[in-house]
């Protein structure tokens, strides 16, 4: 099993992004998907960082793909999606409409925001050219095992969500703008004030969700720290680590140590807790009873 780093969900300064990918080039991950996933309005502010990041990562021996947007509605967003094909890199499809631009048989990756819930869908995507598939985070271990096996039968690696606030929903409405009494078109990029998203709690003070522009995330950081053996047994080939603003290189290193057996699941969880935003972990989508649950000591569940 190895490590994939997914696209950054948040709106960071260009210099921050430059430093982030420079550090990532030195980290023990096998591949990186990058690009703007959440909001096309952000892209002009950091687009120029992409070529240098790709070069640094490739020079360090990492596979690189470019993600599509998660929700494509505007004409300009369709154009951006079509333009992804110009860069001679595999595209990570996170909105199915990206497929219309990819010739039959040309290789692409499938990201966690495409609904791959069963073997029929997995096989159709592979016939169409999918060469890596990251499953949706919502799946249970039983489903993951069936799909990882189906991927193996077709020679296509299947990866699962390994670390990060979970992408739970996407909308046409920008919740960051709404919290500032603004509409999406006049958002003034307020999402940039919250490098790991803006936390939303319940009226009883329970940590619950995090908004990131048009995206809604879990407030807990999902982590497969305690599930590595289960996932290896199921035939999963990679864990996807989702960027956060602090300590990300250290987090990549810690997961690599976990995969190589240097540290235990409990060790990794203990290391992660002070590093993740908000300090709560979850792994409940895999083993129940609900996504917010944590199978180890301490709990992310509401009390």
């Amino acid at each position: 099993m190895d490590l994939t780093v997914g696209p950054n969900f948040f709106f960071w300064e260009a210099e921050t992004i430059r430093a982030f990918y420079r550090d990532l080039a030195a980290s023990p991950v096998a591949r990186v998907s990058l690009g703007e996933l959440v909001c096309s309005k952000r892209l002009p502010f950091w687009r120029d960082e992409i070529p240098a990041a790709v070069e640094a990562l490739q020079t360090a021996g990492k596979e690189v793909a470019l993600t599509s947007l998660a929700l494509v509605t505007l004409k300009r967003e369709r154009k951006l999606t079509a333009d992804l094909m110009d860069l001679d890199l595999p595209v990570e499809v996170n909105d199915l409409s990206a497929l219309i631009h990819i010739p039959e048989g040309q290789a692409f990756w499938v990201g966690p925001l495409v609904n791959v819930y069963n073997e029929g869908t997995l096989r159709w995507l592979i016939r169409r050219g999918a060469r890596r598939i990251c499953l949706p985070p919502e799946l249970t271990l039983d489903s993951v095992a069936v799909l990882a096996q189906a991927g193996r039968d077709e020679g296509v690696p299947v990866e699962v969500w390994g670390h990060g606030r979970l992408p739970l929903a996407i909308s046409a409405r920008c919740y960051h703008a709404r919290l500032h009494d603004r509409a999406k078109d006049s958002c003034q990029f307020v999402c940039g004030e919250d490098p790991d998203g803006r936390d939303v709690g319940t009226l009883d003070g329970q940590r619950f969700l995090t908004v990131n522009g048009v995206q809604t995330l879990s407030q807990s950081t999902a982590s497969m720290a305690l599930k590595v053996e289960d996932l290896q047994g199921a035939g999963v080939s990679a864990l996807r680590l989702s960027p956060q603003s602090r300590d990300f290189a250290a987090i990549c290193g810690a997961y690599a140590d976990r995969l190589s057996g240097k540290i235990s699941g409990a060790d990794l969880a203990a290391m992660l807790r002070p590093m993740v935003p908000g300090g709560t972990l979850s792994d409940g989508f895999l083993s129940g009873p609900a996504g917010a649950a944590w199978s180890g000591e301490g709990t992310a569940a509401p009390r």
Binding site: L113, L166, R173, T216
Partner: peptide, 21 residues
């Protein structure tokens, strides 16, 4: 629905039961 439907796992995050599954 205020979220893109078929792409929302808020319900299963809280309850384990989702529209998709």
């Amino acid at each position: 629905c205020v979220m893109a439907e078929g792409r929302c796992s808020l319900s299963s995050y809280a309850t384990g039961k989702s529209p998709n599954m």
